[in-house]
Design a protein around this nucleic acid. Structure first.
Lengths: 348, 348
DNA sequence: TTGTATGCGTTATCAA
DNA sequence: TTGATAACGCATACAA
């Protein structure tokens, strides 16, 4: 049983290979008579024809594969959404996603970049699992490339700008911080603590800025004493929250850098006999359901748009690959972070 | 600049394409003179030759791609480890992993299986993110296939047995349940509650069995009243634990079906004024660091060997693909679940 | 509007 | 021990 190829379809339809190819690929130039076209389509259908991707690839010099290389797929709960988004977009355009991992190890990264080349992927999505500033590896310089949840060290372009360089998408940390804080001011809170982290990443400065903007918008004075930094873990959040809540003029609400720190803040509140949300309102960040749904009361949190970012990156890369004209419409995007309301916020 | 291929290497080395192919692929039959061999290797090196995978694939009818199709990559924190393990194994043998997703939707699954065929992957890893009993889709029946974290509905073979069917790997739920319970009996606990879930999955029955075995091994009587089932969420764990802990002869230790339920148990204990581990010892399952490290005190938990299972599945599939003799050595494996000790267990 | 013929870069068959 | 050469299945320049 000879595997059915374009040749068999041609025979079945009583036409030549060329015609079949034209019909099946919707070649723009040469036209095919509608009747012939129909015949070919039917024949292909009847025979259950599936194009041989290897042969096609050899000929077109395109594999239809997108490489997704990321720093640490294993240890973060975000990875899934990021990858799934990219996968969905790729799938919709007939591409497949091939995974690569650097494990945050330069040696491994080197090896993976080599593999990326060996496998001859058509384009690359360079992803980080936490919003980071990265310098694009030299090996990726002259390839179709999109940055996912990462921004290039030499970035400067404005939102929606062409920017000229490599497209990238990151969460809008500033707007996210604003959203979280506004939820609190909207509930009448006037003393709002910010339990933040100590790392020098875009999220740290961005969310702080959003916090300040929201305060200003509500006519509130920014008080540096209400901002406490610590490790972005549960125990860091505990320490910071405890410090804030033990003050005489304790805040009535806490905006926490992430859900882990919020988890620590819950413990601090419990130890001090403070009820949530009755005595203290709390807003987290990241919307990690393991935490937000696990805590009691369930935690209101700002979600990171991982799926959407992944999807955008996939779409964008396909655009770059498929578009004849390379007039990149948008090369940089910050995505909004939606608020997910639960039960940890109440009016003062 | 013509891309360098086997032809260029041949010219550079002053030999024929055939010879180059022979030495580069270590063809077992035809021997090449050591000196010639050296010359070819050097030429390839000097030119930085990289084989064209599409051409090779077209010829060998093998893509070097393994399809990893899973039910829900997005929503679970396990996915990363599972995928990473498989990816690592694949990588080590020169294969790449291509991702597919069913989203637990039969329609999508249908489409993805089709894609799997279109992309002509050499083999398939069918993975579920929670240990499940599955029936292998018809479309996968006659392909190189390995089940990951899933067991076929018609399974019957013994560990290490050839089994004849498709290879699969799952966690050893029984041993895991035993491990968790033994940690408690070893600390002198004699009244050990089991906060379990209501779903009919292998983990439910397996862990219960392990619990019973450990009790028996410690010479303790199994008391059905100490086993409470509820939804495997934080609030379910809360309810079940609360019920157990309010009894007059409350247990001094709790084995929880998973970390989420343990999280709820923590809350129940706190509300009842019970200190952990002073008044109550707790062991969880899954070792989800977001929870185990977030809780206070940090939760002792039994870890699911996701990375190892992924790795095994990858290795196994490659074996099936590469091995000339198809005498499958092992077709079924249950992996041990190691205990991760933290601070939630103390002697009575 | 449709058909013929060539080549993409390898591997494998056969001959030398 | 090495070298010519024929597929692999498809897309396309060119001819009809």
């Amino acid at each position: 049983m000879a595997r059915i190829g374009i040749r068999q379809v041609a025979a079945e339809a009583g036409v030549s290979m060329t015609t079949v190819s034209h019909v099946l690929n919707d070649v723009p130039n040469a036209q095919v008579r509608a009747e012939t076209r129909e015949r070919v389509l039917l024949a292909a259908q009847r025979l259950g024809y599936t194009p041989n991707r290897m042969a096609r690839s050899l000929r077109t010099r395109r594999t239809g594969a997108l490489g997704l290389i990321s720093d640490s797929i294993a240890t973060t709960p975000y990875a899934g959404q990021l990858i799934l988004g990219a996968q969905r977009a790729a799938q919709e355009h007939g591409y497949m996603i091939v995974l690569f991992n650097t494990e945050d190890d330069p040696v491994v990264e080197e090896r993976e970049l080599q593999a990326l080349t060996d496998y001859q992927v058509d384009g690359v999505i360079y992803a980080t699992m936490y919003h980071r500033v990265v310098s694009v590896p030299q090996a990726l310089a002259n390839r179709p490339l999109v940055l996912l949840d990462a921004e290039p060290a030499d970035a400067q372009a404005v939102d929606g700008d062409k920017g000229g360089g490599v497209p990238w998408v990151v969460p809008d940390e500033v707007a996210g911080g604003r959203t979280a804080t506004e939820e609190l001011t909207a509930n009448g809170h006037r003393r709002i603590g910010f339990v933040t982290n100590v790392d020098d990443v875009p999220a740290t400065s961005g969310r702080l800025q959003g916090y300040q903007e929201a305060l200003a918008a509500a006519g509130l004075q920014f008080d540096p004493a209400l901002v406490i930094s610590d490790e972005s873990e549960s125990w860091g959040g505990y320490r910071a929250a405890r410090f804030l809540l033990e003050r005489g003029d304790r805040p009535t609400a806490l905006f926490c850098y992430n859900d882990r720190m919020a988890m620590g803040a819950y413990r601090a509140a419990a130890e001090l006999g403070l009820r949530i949300p009755g005595d203290l309102s709390v807003v987290g960040f990241d919307d990690q359901e393991l935490i937000t749904l696990g805590l009691y009361p369930e935690l209101t949190s700002v979600a990171l748009p991982h799926f959407d970012m992944g999807y955008w990156a996939g779409e964008r890369l396909v655009e770059v690959l498929d578009d004849t004209d390379q007039s990149a419409p948008v090369s940089r995007l910050t995505m909004p972070c939606p608020l997910v309301r639960r039960s940890s916020v109440a009016p003062v």
